[in-house]
Amino acid sequence: MEHLIVTHSVKITIAIVFAVMIAAMGSLNIIKYFFHKDVENYLIRARSFLFIVIFFTLGFTSNMYIAFGAIMLISYLCLKEFLSLIPTRKTDRKVLLWAYLSIPVQAYFIYTHWVTMFYLFIPLYMFLIMAIRMVVAGNTDGFLKSLAVMQWGLMTTVYAIGYLGLILIIPFEYNPVAGGVGLLAFILIFTVLNDFMQMFCGKAFGKHKIIPKVSPNKTWEGFIGGVVFSTIISALMAPHLTPLTLKQSLFAGAALAIAGFFGDVTMSAVKRDMGVKDTSSLIPGHGGILDRLDSLIFTAPLFYHYVAYINTIVIPR
């Protein structure tokens, strides 16, 4: 059993996250009881959020088995949500089971540090397997659409989420400050803060709509403000959790903030296409797990690639 190395700076980061959460919930309760304002919605959200933070903390700080269990669970919930969202053909039921099966197989490749196989498994092997299995099922009516939408689902909910595992197994010597756990904490916290900043700036200064056809609440002010604040946040957090230099962290912050924004609106476009408001009602106050992880789907793979690129991380095999 491989224990995950949780350095001092990671522990402090987690402590700060909890402190912020508790302060936020405390002040919401004060507003509720002393100023008699209706903040029930925010409280439900905060409570769900606290639960998510606890889940991630427990999941990614003890050992690899638990961490991979957590990643597989997240992937499973995301894929299930995606498949429930889209119309599926009756003949594809067995094909869908193969899609679910890709989750543990991919986790095995990451766990054994077989990174090349991880890179190729969903984009190449599942791409072939799904087509083969669907041909065998034999229904040609809507064949290409079904195949394409399933591959898209696998890429977003299994492949992209798999990068959380890949970040976790980055060898400790590449990030002596905080290790893989620190890098994972960085991208998770960054993505959440980026979402928050985009929303906050949008609400505070938002005037000019950025893509009204997809997401009527998104504004240029929110987008630009979000990118600016996120870049600063990235520069502040990076020295404690990543091996990035100041310049690199500024660049990464800006790029990831833009990617996060597009992850968010992409999922909005999917929801609009399917005619739903939320992907499910799994997380009270937030909607579904895909509503929550939409930006992470875009930021996590990019972040891994950037870190791997600047540090030329080569994991054997």
Binding site: E81, S84, K90, L97
Partner: peptide, 18 residues
């Protein structure tokens, strides 16, 4: 809505859906 995809009549193999 949904159980007709999870376990339709005449099948024994279930597929997870919400």
């Amino acid at each position: 809505n949904g159980p007709d995809r999870i376990l339709p009549k005449g099948t024994i193999l279930g597929v997870p859906f919400i």
